[in-house]
Amino acid sequence: MIPLSRLAGAIAAASFAVTAVTAFAAETRPYDAQSFAAAQAAGSPIVVEISAPWCPTCKAQKPIIENLAKSDAYKDLVIFEVDFDSQKDAVRSLDARMQSTLIAFDGDKETARSVGDTKPDSIAALFQSAIAQ
C-alpha cells in the first residue's frame, strides 16, 4: 500500500507535468459572441474554425489545427470553434458560406481566410498571419 503522502506527491507531480505540457498550447474554446468580442478587444491573435461533424474536409483539418495549436509559437493564440450546423448566427456574422472555413484575426483585423484547405503549410501560414503583426 502506498502511503498517503507519497500518493499526494505523485498526484501533484503528475498534475504539474500535465500543466507543463499544455502551458504553451493555444487556447481552444467554443465560440460565443461575447468571448470572441473580448478577445478581439484585447488584441489577441485569433483563429476561428468553422466546422461540421459530418464534413470530411473538416476532419482532415482537425489534426493539422491540433498539431499547430501545440506549438510554442502559437501559445497566445485563441482558437474559437464554430459548429456550422448549430451556430448559424455566428456563421453569418463571420460572413462564412460553408464549413471547413478558417479565419485568422489579429485583434479585430482579419488577416487571412481559407475554405476547404487541408495543406499543413498553408494552414500554418494562416495561423502565422494572426501573430505576425
Rank of each mutant, 00 (worst) to 15 (best):
R6H: 11
L7A: 10
L7H: 07
A8N: 12
G9N: 12
I11R: 08
I11Y: 09
A14V: 07
T22R: 09
A26M: 06
E27H: 08
P30Q: 06
P30H: 08
D32F: 01
D32C: 02
A39W: 13
A42K: 15
G43D: 07
G43K: 03
P45M: 02
V47F: 05
E49N: 12
I50T: 03
S51I: 02
S51N: 10
C55P: 10
P56C: 09
K59Y: 01
A60P: 05
K62D: 15
P63I: 08
A73D: 09
Y74G: 14
L77E: 02
I79H: 07
E81N: 13
V82P: 02
V82I: 09
D83A: 03
F84G: 11
F84C: 04
D85I: 08
D89R: 10
R92T: 07
R92H: 11
R97C: 03
R97K: 14
M98G: 14
M98P: 03
S100P: 04
L102H: 01
F105E: 00
F105W: 03
G107D: 10
D108C: 00
K109M: 15
K109L: 14
E110H: 01
E110A: 11
V115A: 14
G116D: 07
G116K: 07
I123H: 08
L126C: 03
L126Q: 01
I131D: 06
